[in-house]
């Protein structure tokens, strides 16, 4: 019995959003009489942090404190239309819609403030702390709250904005199949080190090292969180998870968490992440978002690492101990790839 070390690499270009009717998202922003703003969206925050990021985007665009913005999501009865939370599109598509809506609302906010201050709206600026003042004359100032009250009770004005983001639908060239499905791509490279036991077929992930280029990280800690968690899920898909039966038919498929195998807290690997920020021209404040890309490269990287370790190419998931052992048996034993020095891809 020997444990063989192997290293695998995977690099990906990852599309943000998809070519589905222009992939539109809408956002609605309105102020309440207390000077706080509500953003209505129909995408849902599944835990990836879209509520936090759209809140930041709305606050930044409106020019108000982030604490004064509330994001309401996932009410498809009364919310504005959105294609949904999928295809890694949340930050990019919804973020852009929020910018458009918040810009329109900001315009009304400044118009209302101008009426109260008896100045020209073009001369006003926000301080991001809840105040609006005349540029160059900060003493000519009014709070966002007072403007909201005035708009509501005196001016009869709704401080609100509508936003939609839509990319042109790309027709498919019937000759070549060519199309431009998305407007920007994110990128990643991930290196995985594994250890493969040639007696049991068990693959242990020892370490992951990754670099992600996902535009500007609008909330760096949330990006890191998503990359850490997503890599775990990638590892889980690569080595553990399946809804397909083992023996002898579908009746033996897993129905619950007893049978559905997942790596637990004792099975996690060290993961070092480098986030490269290259703001996307059409992203909200340059952001593209990590999305599903956080899990995807782990699968081919693990498959490559197993091949590197024992010479077995498993091409269907998960890379279960059984498949590894059958592969080793078929080729008459483990065949670590001959690499000079350390195991390398």
């Amino acid at each position: 019995m020997t444990k063989h070390r192997g290293r695998g690499v995977a690099s990906i270009n990852y599309p943000i959003g998809m070519n589905l009717g222009g992939d539109p998202s809408q956002a609605l922003v309105h102020s309440n009489p207390d000077g706080k703003f509500t953003v209505a969206l129909s995408s849902i925050d599944l835990g990836q942090g879209m509520k936090s990021v759209t809140r930041q985007i709305a606050a930044e665009t409106l020019g108000v404190p982030v604490e004064d913005v509330y994001v309401d999501t996932a009410d498809s009865d009364i919310g504005p239309h959105c294609m949904g939370s999928f295809a890694s599109r949340g930050t990019h598509r919804v973020g852009n819609a929020v910018i458009a809506a918040a810009k329109e609302a900001r315009g009304v906010l400044l118009d209302a403030a101008a009426e109260e201050l008896e100045v020209n709206a073009q001369d006003l600026e926000t301080d991001g702390k809840g105040n609006i003042h005349v540029r160059g004359a900060p003493q000519r100032s009014i709070t966002v709250r007072d403007v909201s009250i005035a708009a509501q009770f005196r001016q009869g004005r709704t401080i609100s904005g509508r936003g939609i983001f839509l990319i042109p639908l790309s027709d498919v060239n019937p000759e070549t199949g060519e199309m431009s499905p998305v407007s920007c791509y994110a990128h990643a490279c991930l290196v995985v080190d594994v250890e493969v036991d040639d007696e049991t077929g068990v693959v242990d992930v020892l370490q992951m090292n990754s670099a992600y280029e996902l535009g500007r990280a609008l909330n760096p800690k949330l990006v890191e969180q998503q990359l850490v968690g997503g890599a775990w899920m990638g590892m889980s898909h690569a080595l553990y998870e399946t809804t397909e039966p083992y023996y002898p038919d579908r009746a033996h498929a897993p129905n619950d968490f007893n049978d559905y195998v997942m790596p637990g807290p004792g099975d996690i690997a060290e993961h070092n992440i480098a986030v490269l920020e290259r703001p996307a021209p059409d992203g909200p404040f340059g952001g593209k978002g990590p999305g599903e890309m956080c899990a995807n490269p782990v699968l081919p990287a693990v498959a490559n690492a197993v091949f590197n370790a024992v010479g077995v190419r498993v091409d269907d998931l998960p890379i279960s101990p059984e498949k590894v052992l059958r592969g080793i048996k078929d080729q008459g034993g483990a065949r670590p790839m001959p690499t000079p020095g350390q195991a390398g891809a």
Binding site: G47, Q225, V228, G229, G230, A231, W232, M233, F257, M262, G264, P265, G266, I268, H271
Partner: peptide
């Protein structure tokens, strides 16, 4: 000991590392 203590709790998002 921390890993053992939460070994019966499933998390699908975080990858456990931040929880530990």
């Amino acid at each position: 000991e921390v890993v053992e203590a939460i070994a019966g709790n499933v998390c699908r998002c975080t990858g456990y590392e931040p929880i530990i």
